[in-house]
Amino acid sequence: MKHAFKKLAAVTIGSLMATAVAAADYPAKPIQVIIPFGAGGNSDTSGRILLNGMQKVLGADLVPVNVPGAGGTIGMAQFAGAEADGYTLAFSPSAPTTLQPNLRPLPYGKDSMVAVCLLTDNPTAVTVSPDSPYSSMEELVEAAKAETLIVAGPAPGSVPHITQAALANAIGTTFTYLPVGGGAEEAKALLGKQADLAADNSAMGTVHGLKTLAVASAERIDELPDVPTLTELGIDVQVSIFNGLYAPANTPVEILETLSDACGQAVEDPEVKSRLQDANFIVRYLGHEDFQAFYEEQFDASLEMLTKIGLVK
């Protein structure tokens, strides 16, 4: 009995020490960062910029690994099943982490991951074609109540899809949803007059030369100072698309802190900042504790909104 106890003690102390040592010289080998969308997309672009910046700080390789499919859930499922040793992370937008788990049964959930750091936070915005008959949100709302407008967006379960559903709910009308793909495809649908509006990332207007009628945030954003918020107009809808770094649940706190600090330093790097801003991201850094709180808050808010719209019973 005594032998067993001694052995157990030795093993416990040994593994604690090993963890401490491992944490101390973390990162000792390349870190894989799963990006649950294809190369060239929004989250891929911002992720690569961040990882490139973090590499300089950490002195180790951060390798982006694209695992696309099923709205980001395939990649996140793979990530959630990885070991919590800090060598597999995920960089994801908000839909796979806050919306999808609330919409359908998945092999992962809020408790499968822990937040490391927030990088970008763009509100969604209502955009129309430059030669659209609606030049203000009020006009659009009136038209929306009179007839059924067509909204272009990505596949259901994405942030723009939720935004337009919330918008319709708040106005008291319904839209017809036309899934076409990401921002560029939405712009094409607007310009080609197949759809009347889109409700995607606030950067879309500038990037594709569209008219932005309103933003879905609490306050006006610096990038679009002349665009009113939906709240100002009496429509209580606030939705944002945020990109952040995550680690599997139970990752040691020391590792989280190392990563979070490196992330913070990378964001301060002028080259990283300018690259992100040139790509039209609104940079907003939150460390791991603040981001964890923010993430949980967003998760619950999503569930609430989805229930209100009726997409979740």
């Binding site: 294809g38 190369a39 060239g40 997309g41 891929d44 672009t45 690569r48 910029i49 921002g183 560029a184 495809e185 712009a187 094409k188 990037v207 594709h208 300018s274 690259r275 040139d278 790509a279 039209n280």
Partner: peptide
Amino acid sequence: LGIPGDAATAVMLGALVIHGIT
């Protein structure tokens, strides 16, 4: 248009965006 013609051009677009060219 910023719409990739195929998977390869999607990668190229991403690289352009990283360099600040939208």
